[in-house]
Design a binder for these strands. Sequence first.
RNA 1: GGAGGCGUAGCGAAGCUGGUUAUCGCGCCGGCCUGUCAAGCCGGAGAUCGCGGGUUCGAUCCCCGUCGCUUCCGCCA
Length: 424
Amino acid sequence: MERTLVKDIQAHEGKEIMLSGWIHRIRDLGGVTFIILRDRSGRCQIVTNEAMELTQETVVRAYGKVCANDKAPGGYELALDHFDVLGPAAAELPFPVNGDPSKVGIELTLDQRMISLRNPQILSIFRLQASLVQYFAEYLRGRDFTEIKSSKMIGTGTEGGTSVFSVEYFDRKVFLAQSPQFYKQAMVSSGLERVFEIGHAYRAEKHETSRHINEYVSLDVEMGFIESEMDIIKLERGLLAYIFDRVNENNREDMEAWGATCPTGDQVLKAPVISHDEAKQIIRDKLDRRVFEISPEGERALCAWSEEEHGTPLVFVNEFPRRKRPFYTYPKGTKTMSFDLLFRGLEITTGGRRINEYAMLKETLPRFGMTEEQLGGYGDIFKYGCPPHGGFAIGLERLTQKIMGLGNIKECSLFPRDRKRVTP
RNA sequence: GGAGGCGUAGCGAAGCUGGUUAUCGCGCCGGCCUGUCAAGCCGGAGAUCGCGGGUUCGAUCCCCGUCGCUUCCGCCA
């Protein structure tokens, strides 16, 4: 007999069908037992008069007849004929699969990741995340961007101040890529002009906060033939507006699991662009004290300001000072053609125009205490003709976290890696 | 790396100005129950109160140390 998905049972009313899934909940009333079965499409009720030994999370095939019943959740239920047990489950689960995950500490949730991921509410985070990846790629492919996959093992050191992990590579050491920055620039220059990459990035920072993990997914974009960072901001506005519209269309259920809401595409288009100096002034006014840097508290203040003044929880900050940006950032006086995007109080993107002329790059290096040798092959991208270009990267887990309104980024990583955790 | 908070049963918590059987809810085990929706009712098992030391007649409670977790900060996506 062919399998029927839980979401389709009403179409089989009166017929014998077979469902496959996990025993989500058992309500044994003595003479009658109600069993909730869960599969990838949802949950439905199975009813039986027979007493049976069954544990939660046992994987079964359930044979029976679909009956309409007002008292059944969803209006239909399966009158059970019999179960085939495909995968028995031990009693006493290490994590409440059918409970409210917000009542459980994050430590247990992550220690028991293999089981906590079964929780439908937790799983909804990753359904949404998968959708974000899909929409991101959809939008870019539709605009002539080519997807690339670059190596995460790099032979030469670092591109910025961030520390990198080193790993053994036969008889020497290599580093885990902190971003695909140079490779995506190389691919712009190679003639693809427009590229994007979805891949892991590694940061060896010893930070321990609710917004950092040491391995994260970076949604990277790079594009040739631009004038300034404003072209990149425009691209990201359109991209995020598309992603958010699609989320609001297709991911309602995922968001409802957490009582979350996603901004509209229109709100993304309304996001203001303010300079780094303006941003500091706004924070100064809001917090009523002197401000020298945009701190996390300042980021929250900026988003609150944007919400009040522009009706959007997003704000672009551009014209960062040169010393706050990596050496390859295109200068503009003492400032740079670069930007951050803040969303609901958190930085989710850094981007900007990059230096595309070898002479300018060479001139810039000493300011960062670097030499041409340290560039390795990077310099060749520009030595032999490279179009003006730029791009940005979105932190996938951060974006997920902010849409879902979750307190800790680790909840948005399937198997998070932090200072202490490398398992499961 | 710095600052704060928290470690009590499988999970989430209460407790104690220091007093001898450490409490509650969920879960688990057993019993009753034919329409449940976090089912209900009855019963039961389950805790060296993170670890080490100190103060005290007596410490889960106070003090010191240590380990773990967590939040915030620095830095970043």
